[in-house]
Design a protein around this nucleic acid. Structure first.
Length: 874
RNA sequence: GGGGAUAUAGCUCAGUUGGUUUAGAGCACCUGCCUUACAAGCAGGGGGUCGUAGGUUCGAAUCCUACUAUCCCCA
């Protein structure tokens, strides 16, 4: 016999390999089958599997495995994105270790290193997904920087440019002086840093007055374009319309008025430095101030600063502070904690910097994407995200798509000798355009200089659902026509705008069709304290360790059990243990069944009825499960399966058909038990693929065509609800008897007598075999009299007695009955109140009134029984 | 500063367009059991004035308003 404890590691790799060998994950268009398609949210090629991926990919795998079993042509496309900033940073670091500086390399040389890095270290995450059981079609793996996908990106850029959606413009970017690149907002980490607030005196022009400004960045005073005060600030009436002198460089600047200035903060006088602060830049725009950029790309001061030229910004800060002190213009230094942005990659302090960038105009493009989510052509699950989506789309801002990097698709814009530019797919086409534009046929490719910047990685991934099926390279190909639009997208709400919305925009703009029907937004996996998992906190468990310790099935189940769509999941290792426990439970149930010897004896009544009952329960559960799946309630679907297996199959069904120890089981019961078990394995397979396939194959040897992964998903058949309801009466009775055993300390081995006082004997007779077996009864006797010296309890309004000499504590019994009586009276009271309300009777639907009346009569009957009981106890 | 979301048992959450309900599940907890599938198990049990205050309604956890708290996004 197999081990009493389920050991996942022994079987998981075996079955994954088996599925791969027999190409069960592979998909190709099949006109006779309905396609079911998911494209993976491409993880960062440098990434490692984290808990978010685990959750997200488990959900995708559940959906795809179920669809496959439903006979659909299930296709899950895997792949990675090239993550320009992250990858470039990794490559730069690796080169640094080898003693090579990026600046010493040509673009081509650098790209060669980068590709080498990608081939060697990239995409580990996809290998890790295999451990989780992800049934992706690995032959279809794509990468956003591969040739075909890059060609799509360039094509789209040229197309948008021609349509007038792409332009160049000035923008304040998050500049990383170490990485020498602009960063996206989400690549900037804000940290609280202790710093100083310097109070500096500026002389007011034409007198001996001075004003005081407070700044954390004194090294930027040379770039000041104005001093700004709040127009409502009465303290500074005398400054209005005057000018101030920047100390040290003695430059005169205007004093302006703007509401932006916070009268409470600092001194109420703000130095305005448009080139080096986003808010100041906006004030500058309002007041037509000059932009004086005094900081180089590497963070040193340039000649426009006039002083300290060539010094690093932080050294300059110290030096200038010293100069203030010497000149007596430093009024005071204050300790201050400021929130400073740091580069996620290099940890350098971010320098706000104005630069010329490429943008996509969004206002027009967004329209179909906005409408089709609002009218549910594309459904967001849960729908609460429609609000967020709406807000974003209504306030959409132009998309900055250029990045000052090499790893990515180089922008296909070519500058002409006169500074103008042309946009074209290739250098050859660009040259033709240039000749035309300049009216100069003597131009050669040497006269053109291609833009150095590359495109934002999102500018690749917004095409993902189309480009993975070669929808640009070969727009009318079989795959694209068959698989697109895809069915479901599973991702996190944090990239609803960055990625999801942009894919929808691209889908409509380039193909006139939505990219997917449904977007399932998962929650964020947090630790037990509700904190986001991060490397810094070290609060994230290693997913591969979890799989090693609890099995992929255990981890999958644990993650799904408590993660409703859109809700954050507080991850606790206990969840994985619960998942494993469930697997172990099933493992042991199977051991029990497999251990039975079989004879051709007659089937006991309890077993005959148990089979009928479980079949009904199974079908009832299938209906519930289908309903949950149709609403993307994956967690609820799993919980329904969990309870069906644990409570109904193991705790009730198996106990009902189980022969006495050592006895064999009859053939019919055995067959039914195995058939039910097989159905359960099918339903559970999408959630726990490994364990279910293992047991499926242990039931009997099967050919690859009979593998569970491609078995047919069970369909709910019609069933008799009465069976479930009537059996429930027996189960309630069993619980009550077990309760009495527990409270009176009676061993389960001691057979008991049960008396039932009822008008409906049939209800108890029908499933009496269940009661005999599970409650261990000697006999059931129907009576019209009360039984003395017995413990009693109620099933609805029927009184049941178990004779028990001297075991009755009258006072305790009385207290219990009184409590129950009071509750029921209160309940009756609320019902009667409702029914005596004329407006209720007139307005409420008939069904509701009938229900209330039933509640009333049930409660009245119960009260009568309880009162009699109380009387007899006196 | 602007916007959004959430608030139900110790924890995590259901409660499906207001009516089977003086509220359900899983986990945790308590009690008793090593009953020959499983002690990572079995059987039983306790536990919530549905964030606060108003309002609409015959009827509110559910709809409306205000407040409080927490989280997220944008600046």
């Amino acid at each position: 016999m197999s081990a009493t404890k389920y050991n996942p590691t022994e079987i998981e790799d075996k079955w994954y390999q088996y599925w791969m060998e027999h190409k069960f994950f592979a998909s190709k268009p099949d006109k006779n089958k309905e396609p079911y398609t998911i494209v993976i949210p491409p993880p960062n090629v440098t990434g490692q599997l984290h808990m978010g991926h685990m959750l997200n990919n488990t959900i995708q795998d559940v959906l795809i495995r179920r669809a496959r079993m439903q006979g659909k042509e299930a296709c899950w496309v895997p792949g990675t994105d090239h993550a320009s900033i992250a990858t470039e940073a990794k490559v730069v670091n690796l080169l640094k270790e080898k003693g090579i500086k990026k600046s010493d390399l040509t673009r081509e040389e650098f790209m060669k290193h980068a590709w080498e890095w990608k081939e060697k270290y990239g995409g580990i995450i996809l290998q890790q997904l295999k451990k989780l059981g992800a049934s992706c079609d690995w032959d279809r793996e794509r990468f956003t920087m591969e040739e075909d996908l890059s060609a799509a990106v360039i094509e789209v850029f040229v197309d948008l440019y021609k349509k007038g959606y792409i332009y160049r413009g000035i923008r304040m970017v998050n500049w990383d002086p170490e990485g020498k690149t602009a960063l996206a907002d989400d690549e900037v980490i804000f940290k609280e840093v202790p710093s100083k607030l310097y109070h500096i005196k500026y002389r007011v022009e034409g007198g001996n007055d001075y004003l005081v400004i407070a700044t954390t960045r004194p090294e930027t005073i040379m770039a000041d374009a104005a001093i700004c005060i709040n127009p409502n600030d009465s303290r500074f009436e005398h400054l209005k319309g005057k000018r101030a002198i920047i100390p040290i460089i003695n430059k005169s600047i205007p004093i302006i008025e703007d509401d932006y200035v916070d009268m409470e903060f600092g001194t109420g006088c703000l130095k305005v430095t448009p080139a080096h602060d986003i808010n100041d830049y906006e004030i500058g725009l309002r007041h037509n101030l000059p932009v004086i950029d005094i900081i180089n790309d590497d963070g040193t001061l340039n000649e426009k600063a006039q002083i300290l030229v060539g010094e690093d910004r932080f050294i300059a800060r110290k030096k200038i502070a010293k100069m203030f002190k010497e000149d007596g213009i430093l009024e005071k230094e204050e300790e201050y904690t400021s929130n400073v942005g740091h580069s996620e990659r290099t940890n350098a302090v971010i320098e706000p910097k104005l630069s010329l960038q490429w943008f996509v105009k969004m206002e027009e493009l967004v329209k179909p994407a906005y409408e089709n989510v609002m009218n549910d052509t594309i459904q967001l699950i849960p729908p609460k995200f429609k609000n967020t989506y709406k807000h974003w789309m209504e306030n959409v801002r132009d998309w900055c798509i250029s990045r000052q990097l090499w790893w990515g698709q180089r922008i296909p814009a070519y500058y002409l000798p006169n500074g103008d530019f042309v946009v074209a797919k290739s250098e050859e086409e660009a040259l033709e355009l240039a000749k035309e534009k300049m009216s100069d046929s003597t131009l050669t490719s040497k006269d053109l200089k291609q833009e150095d910047d590359v495109l934002d990685t999102w500018f690749s991934s917004w095409l993902w659902p189309m480009s993975v099926f070669d929808g640009f390279k070969d727009p009318d190909n079989e795959d694209f026509n068959y698989y697109y639009p895809t069915n479901d997208l599973v991702t996190g709400p944090d990239i609803l705008f960055f990625w999801v919305a942009r894919m929808i925009i691209a889908g409509y703009e380039f193909k006139g069709k939505k990219p997917f029907n449904n977007v399932y937004l998962t929650g964020i996996v947090r630790d037990t304290q509700g904190r986001k998992m991060s490397k810094q906190l070290g609060n994230s468990p290693d997913p591969l360790d979890l799989i090693k310790n609890h099995g992929a099935d255990g981890v999958r189940t644990g993650l799904l059990l408590s993660s409703a769509a859109g809700n954050d999941l507080l991850f606790d290792i206990k969840l994985c243990e619960q998942g494993w426990n469930f697997g172990n439970k099933i493992w042991n149930a199977f051991r029990l069944i497999k251990g039975w010897e079989i004879t051709d004896t007659e089937t006991p009544e309890a077993s005959v009825k148990a089979q009928k009952w479980f079949e009904a329960r199974l079908n009832q559960s299938l209906v519930e499960i289908e309903d949950h799946f149709s609403k993307f309630r994956i967690s609820d679907a799993l919980m329904t399966v969990y309870k069906l297996i644990w409570d109904d199959y193991c705790s009730l069904y198996l106990e009902l058909v189980k022969p006495p120890y050592g006895d064999p089981i009859d053939q019919k019961s055995y067959d039914a038990t195995i058939t039910f078990f097989e159905e359960l394995m099918k339903i559970l397979h999408p959630f726990m693929p490994f364990l279910t396939e293992e047991l499926w194959q242990q039931i009997q040897s099967r050919s690859p065509k009979e593998a569970l992964i491609i078995a047919q998903w069970p369909e709910a058949k019609s069933f008799d609800e009465q069976i479930v309801l009537q059996a429930q009466v027996a189960f309630d009775l069993i619980s009550q008897i077990r309760n009495i055993r527990a409270s009176k300390g009676i061993s389960p081995k001691e057979a008991l007598k049960l008396y039932v006082k009822t008008d409906e004997q049939i209800v108890y007779e029908k499933y009496s075999a269940f009661i005999y077996k599970l409650a261990n009864l000697e006999t059931i006797i129907f009576t019209s009299e009360k039984i003395d010296n017995a413990v009693s309890f109620l099933i609805k309004s029927d009184e049941c007695f178990i004779p028990m000499e001297g075991a009755i504590d009258v006072e305790k019994e009385k207290a219990e009955v009184t409590k129950d009586l009071e509750y029921t009276k209160g309940f009756l009271n609320s019902v009667v109140k409702k029914l005596s309300n004329e407006r209720f009777v007139n307005n409420a639907p008939e069904q509701v009134i009938a229900m209330e009346k039933k509640k009333q009569s049930d409660a009245e009957a119960k009260i009568k029984t309880l009162e009699e009981r109380l009387e007899s106890l006196k």
